[in-house]
Amino acid sequence: MSERAAAAAPTPNVTRTDPMQPAPWRVVRTEPETHDAFKLTLAPVEAGPPFTFEAGQFNMLFAPGVGEAALSMSGCSGTVDRVVHTIRAAGRVTKTLRTLKRGDVLGLRGPFGKPWPVGLAEGRDVLLVAGGIGLAPLRPALCHMLEHRERFGRVNLLYGARSPQDILFAKEIETWRGRFDVSVEVTVDRAGADWHGRVGVVTTLVPRAQFDPANTVAFICGPEIMMHFTQRELERHGVPDESVWVSMERNMKCGVGFCGHCQFGPLFVCKDGPVFRYDRVAPLLGIREV
């Protein structure tokens, strides 16, 4: 990406390889996803080297004049000519990104971070456990598994949202449900009388999934407390810590491991993560305010 950024710079000098320089990307499509989440589809403004990313990686998206935010990609991974982000409008930058229209240009640098180890899941049963907007970074992993379905054992998606109105990818979830080769379970924390699905925390879905605990890989993404309790539930079902992976979230400024903001004990979430094997972060997750 930095090469592309440098190509845009009129006076090339020392910053040629500066990882802090975003490249211009154009919004080719915007879609509301829920009442507070939306989807942005982006294409590079300039011709450049192909954009390749792996499931679970993130970009720094730059709203000129407002700022940058670290956001996971939700589109299918690989070498792509479009980058898809599903974003919850939570802060200043993401709220600005929501106002963008087709044709607008924003800045993008990335991809950054360690991805979900989808290769390790081959030949094994899979549990994808998502809480809230945490489904977005897991979508590329599911996408990859459905594309190469024969390589994986039983694939389970367990998804918990706050309310029926907060369910991401609602249409796609229906499509996945229609497939016989993936099991999809959804629950919400609270719902009105018009909700006929499950109510309860996402951990209550674990007993409904079919997996061989000794030969399973679990990817979890959601609030820290949700990941913690999901891991406990998996442990109860016999899934060892070494088979569990979580994706962490921290405030990030540089994305490449030197601004210091995302430090999580000795780890930098941006470059050592955001995806970590559970046993690596377990001691830290147990400490208040690491």
Binding site: A5, A8, A9, P10, T11, P12, N13, V14, T15, D18, M20, Q21, P22, P24, V45, P64, G103, D104, V105, G107
Partner: peptide
Amino acid sequence: TLFSYENRDGVPVLADP
């Protein structure tokens, strides 16, 4: 300053300090 930018025809064009 890490870079400055200027909007030219809708595209932010970056310049080095």
